[in-house]
C-alpha cells in the first residue's frame, strides 16, 4: 500500500507540472473556454463514482452515494464539454 501511494504521489506531482506547462501557453482570448473545458475534465471523478455505484454486494449506502455521485459528475462532464464546444464554435477568424 505504501509504495502504491508514493507512486501515485509521483504521478500527481508530475501531472501538475505537465498541466502548468501546457496551460501557461493558452492566450487570454481562450481563458473562459479553457476554464470550462478543464472543469469538464475535473468531472473525471465520474469514474470513481461508477466504480462505487457498481460495486455490487456492498452496502446500499455506498450504492446510493455512488448513484448520486454518478449523476452529479455526469452533469459536470456532459454540461462542461458541450458548453465549451458551444463557445469555441463561435470563435471565428
Amino acid at each position: 500500500m505504501e509504495t502504491t501511494l508514493i507512486a501515485s504521489l509521483f504521478v500527481f506531482v508530475l501531472a501538475a507540472f505537465v498541466g502548468f506547462e501546457v496551460i501557461n501557453k493558452v492566450p487570454p482570448t481562450l481563458h473562459t473556454p479553457l476554464m470550462s473545458g478543464a472543469n469538464a475534465i475535473s468531472g473525471i471523478t465520474v469514474i470513481g463514482a461508477v466504480l462505487i455505484a457498481g460495486a455490487g454486494g456492498s452496502s446500499t449506502v455506498t450504492t446510493i452515494l455512488g448513484f448520486i455521485a454518478v449523476i452529479l459528475a455526469t452533469v459536470n462532464v456532459v454540461g462542461g464539454f458541450l458548453v465549451t464546444d458551444r463557445m469555441l464554435q463561435m470563435f471565428k477568424k
Partner: peptide, 13 residues
C-alpha cells in the same frame, strides 16, 4: 491514476 492525473491537470490550470 486516471483521476489523479486529470485532477492534477485541472488543479494546475
Amino acid at each position: 491514476n486516471m483521476l489523479i492525473i486529470a485532477g492534477a491537470l485541472v488543479g494546475a490550470s
